[in-house]
Every structure is written in structure tokens, then in C-alpha cells.
Design a protein around this nucleic acid. Structure first.
Length: 256
DNA sequence: AAATCATACAACCGCTCTTGG
DNA sequence: GCCAAGAGCGGTTGTATGATT
């Protein structure tokens, strides 16, 4: 469908590779004046020897003023794992829920940090299920297409964090034992898997559905059925950004 | 100090989706 | 409804930097 993907490639004079400060400045200045959009025309209009695609990427992933640079926080970690367990590699969808983070950044962070962490904990980062559980599933001859994943990984990520923390703590205080952790995980092993998903479902519908299931099943404490903000949906009630105490907030009902 | 390996992340590539004529 | 252009997304690669030998 559409034009050939490489149609922009046969312009030999286009720059590639790392952007220079000068190029960045030109792009920033141009967008300040003209705003985003029309990426195809932008390089020519701005006087950049780049393809529009490259300009868009540079702006959205690096130059946008609302970007939040720096390390991911523990909360962001948790959010990413949760959302990935719901939506898989839908990085743009995940990025929507993390203001100031880009899909590219999250994708990179997933591949370099979280993915590895989950693997080291015996969790398949694709399915969010314990690796031996997957093996036994396969042995069971279950041919149904799997799987909207479980939340094992999220819980394990949290456990991992606390493990890491305790490892750094000389006193070695551990809240709960390995077995108990395992037990808790089993309790929360929510296999939301279904058969083949309807091709007509839109992302947002899909998102709402999954989010509501997720919220219903995962949230451990009682939840009011109204005025729930994003933070609460992600288990961050009362933390920075939580709007639930503000009954008039525009961010309310975001998921409901 | 040099070589090698590992990691992080910016940028590119190829594909699909959306939109307008 | 069809087609082409533009935009966006996810996967992959290239390279700079840090750690280790």
C-alpha cells in the first residue's frame, strides 16, 4: 500500500547519521516559527539536508521541549512493565502514558534494562510468564493463540527492585521470603489470554478493555468506581501526579 | 596503556496506516 | 472504491562510551 518505502532514499545529497548542533538549531528554530507537521516539506523549507522522516524523528525523540531526559524512575519502570504486559510492544501506546518519554526511548530502555532484568528472573519478556510455565503450557498441547500476558513480570519487577534494594542494604532486611513471594505471584497470575483478537477493534477500544480488566483484577485495594486518574490506575495513588483528590480534575475518568 | 567486550541510545529502515483527491 | 502521498510505528543497526582483561 502507498508509496515505495525507499522513495526518499535516492537523494544522494541528504545527510545521514548523527545530527550536528547547527542542524538541531535550524530544526528547532523552524518548528518554533512554523510548528510541527508537513515533515516532507520541512527540510527543504528549513534548509536542512535531511529527509522529513529524519527531522520528525529528531524532533520527537530528542529536541521536543517537553521531553523528560534522564534516568527512568522506579515508578516509570513499573508502569512500563505493567503496560507492556497489557499491550506488548506497542511502544507508542505505552509512551502515551508516560508524559515526556518517547516511544523510542521506552523501547530502548525495555531492550537494554527491563527485558534483561525479567530474563534474569526467569520471566519471558514477551509473555510476562515464567519461562518454565511457558514450557509446560506448550507441552500441554494448548494450541490456542497466546496470550495477553499475565502480570507476573510486574510483580517480579517489583520484587526484583526490592531484592536489589536489599542487596544494597548491608543489614540485608528482607520483607518476605522467596516462597511467599512466589505464592503471591501465583495469586496474581492473571492469564487474560484470549483467542484471536478481533481485527476490527481499535487501539483505544482494545486499550480500554484491557485496562479495565487489568484494573479490576490487579488492583488489590478497594477502588471507587469513579474519579480514578491515571496514577491510580497504575497503582500510584497519592503520588506525584495523582489527581484523585481533585474532584474537578480534567484528567479524571480517563480510563473509565 | 592497549585491546577487547559490553552497554546504551540515537538514528535508520521497511512496513503499515491514514488521508485526501 | 481506488490510488498515491504522507505520517507513524516497531525492529534493527551503528557508534560512542565505559568496563574489563
Amino acid at each position: 500500500m502507498g508509496r515505495s518505502p525507499s522513495s526518499f532514499d535516492h537523494k544522494p545529497h541528504l545527510n545521514k547519521g548523527a545530527w550536528t548542533e547547527e542542524e538541531d538549531q535550524i530544526l528547532i528554530n523552524y518548528i518554533k516559527v512554523h510548528g510541527e507537521g508537513s515533515w516532507r516539506q520541512l527540510p527543504k523549507a528549513a534548509g536542512l539536508l535531511r529527509c522529513g522522516k529524519s527531522c520528525r524523528l529528531r524532533w520527537t525523540n530528542y529536541l521536543r521541549p517537553d521531553l523528560r531526559r534522564g534516568n527512568f524512575t522506579e515508578e516509570e519502570d513499573e508502569i512500563i512493565v505493567k503496560l507492556h504486559s497489557l499491550h506488548g510492544n506497542k511502544w507508542s501506546l505505552i509512551a502515551e502514558r508516560l508524559p515526556g518519554r518517547t516511544d523510542n526511548e521506552i523501547k530502548n530502555y525495555w531492550n537494554t534494562h527491563i527485558r534483561r532484568k525479567l530474563l534474569s528472573q526467569g520471566i519471558d519478556p514477551k509473555t510476562h510468564r515464567r519461562i518454565n510455565a511457558i514450557a509446560s503450557d506448550n507441552g500441554g498441547g494448548n494450541n490456542s493463540i497466546s496470550c495477553i500476558p499475565t502480570v507476573d513480570s510486574f510483580q517480579m519487577a517489583k520484587v526484583g527492585k526490592s531484592r536489589d534494594d536489599s542487596a544494597h542494604n548491608a543489614s540485608g532486611n528482607r520483607g518476605i521470603g522467596e516462597e511467599e513471594q512466589q505464592h503471591q505471584l501465583l495469586d496474581l497470575n492473571l492469564d487474560l489470554s484470549l483467542s484471536v483478537q478481533s481485527p476490527t477493534s481499535t487501539n483505544s477500544e482494545e486499550f480500554k478493555q484491557k485496562d479495565s480488566s487489568f484494573q479490576t483484577l490487579v488492583k488489590p485495594q478497594p477502588v471507587l468506581s469513579h474519579n480514578i486518574c491515571l496514577c491510580c490506575n497504575l497503582g500510584l495513588y497519592g503520588k506525584e501526579g495523582c489527581k484523585c483528590q481533585d474532584a474537578n480534575s480534567d484528567n479524571l475518568h480517563r480510563y473509565l
